Simulated assay, not measured.
Amino acid sequence: MTPAIITKDLTKKFGDFTAVNGINFEAARGEIFGFLGPNGSGKTTTIRMMLGLLPPTAGEIQALGISVKGNQAELQQRVGYMSQRFSLYNDLTVQQNLQFYGAAYGLNKVDLKNRIQDALAMAGLEGRENAKTKDLSGGWRQRLALSTAILHRPELIFLDEPTAGVDPISRRAFWDLLYQLVADGVTVFVTTHYMDEAEHCHDLAFIQRGNIIARGSPARIKETMMDGQVLEISTSDAIKTVKVLRAAQKAGKIPLKEVELYGSLVHVVAPNIEKKINDIQAILKKAEIRTEQMAVIEASLEDVFIASMK
């Protein structure tokens, strides 16, 4: 089948600033495609071009087998969009918001009634139809926003940081909804900065300063992009451990690629990391840092992401 999205040398410039720099990728149908990058890397600009809201400076975009340029009206009936800012009406109820957006999509009364019921059931919003949107928690508001974006049953949906600011349990429930959509054949294009969410995408692209710097499945990216192994360290003082090891790295006392803080743990990346464990222990002992546990672990997507963004 034709991919859901194809970009060819997609470029966007604002004056002398290049926001998106000739990127190329494809997103297969019926999958979740994750688009990862720090703030200002070009994620939202790319989505706006794919939606036809922003004309590219150069390059081409195809969505669902047709060119985005000149076909925005046709694609509007086949594509859904959920922005990173909550865009529903707070003073309306759940039911009223769904009715408003359904009417905006041009659904007739019979179809709209049925689709609202389907959306309420899918999102678990049954029983909350008469609740004011402003009274919903962040997680329920995100479910409602997704429900409005799929009322017209799009084949492709764009989600821009959909779970930002939502608690972990609500984020997990939201992703369960995304898997339901994919099971029904919908393609999901999602930007996120949560690495645990990125792990659940079928395919990924890392973007930095407008350039694609990594592409592939999470497993493939970890296999090909990680230069070295990861040593996870638990010590009596994680912050001091990072400072000491970075100082030793900078002074050339030990060849390390990365030293990063991961909650209460420290991740150290280097080729043949096992051969450096004794040296690391000696450096920490000299700094009067007690080592509680060290283990070579499989690199997480967050490890790869941080290493790639350097």
Rank of each mutant, 00 (worst) to 15 (best):
A119Q: 03
Q95I: 05
E60L: 08
S83G: 10
N114I: 10
F100S: 07
K113F: 06
S41W: 13
P154E: 10
F158K: 06
L144H: 02
L75Y: 06
E74H: 07
L53T: 06
K13D: 03
F14P: 07
R29E: 11
I150R: 02
Q95R: 14
G42C: 11
I47A: 00
G139D: 13
L125Q: 07
Y89D: 03
I61G: 03
F100D: 08
T46A: 08
K13H: 10
T46F: 05
I150S: 03
G37M: 08
G40R: 00
K134W: 05
H152F: 04
K43G: 02
G42P: 13
G22E: 12
I116S: 00
L75V: 11
I116L: 00
Y101M: 09
A103D: 13
K109I: 13
D160I: 12
G124E: 12
G59Y: 07
N90I: 02
Y81G: 02
F14R: 05
K109N: 13
R143W: 13
V94N: 00
L159A: 01
L53Q: 04
G124A: 04
M122Y: 01
F14E: 06
I47Y: 09
R85Q: 14
F100H: 12
D111I: 11
A27Y: 15
A27F: 15
I150K: 04
F25Q: 09
E126G: 07
D16E: 13
G52F: 05
I23H: 06
L156W: 07
Q117M: 06
A63V: 15
P56I: 15
A28M: 10
Q72R: 12
A145N: 03
K132P: 00
N39S: 10
L112W: 09
R153S: 14
V68T: 04
L146D: 02
G40K: 04
F100T: 14
P56G: 14
L144N: 01
L112A: 02
Q76I: 09
K43E: 05
F35I: 06
Y81A: 08
F35N: 11
A104D: 09
S87H: 05
M82K: 09
R143S: 01
K132S: 02
T45F: 02
R78Y: 05
D91W: 01
N39R: 13
L125T: 10
N97D: 03
G40H: 00
Q96D: 08
G70D: 11
K109V: 14
Q77I: 11
Y105D: 09
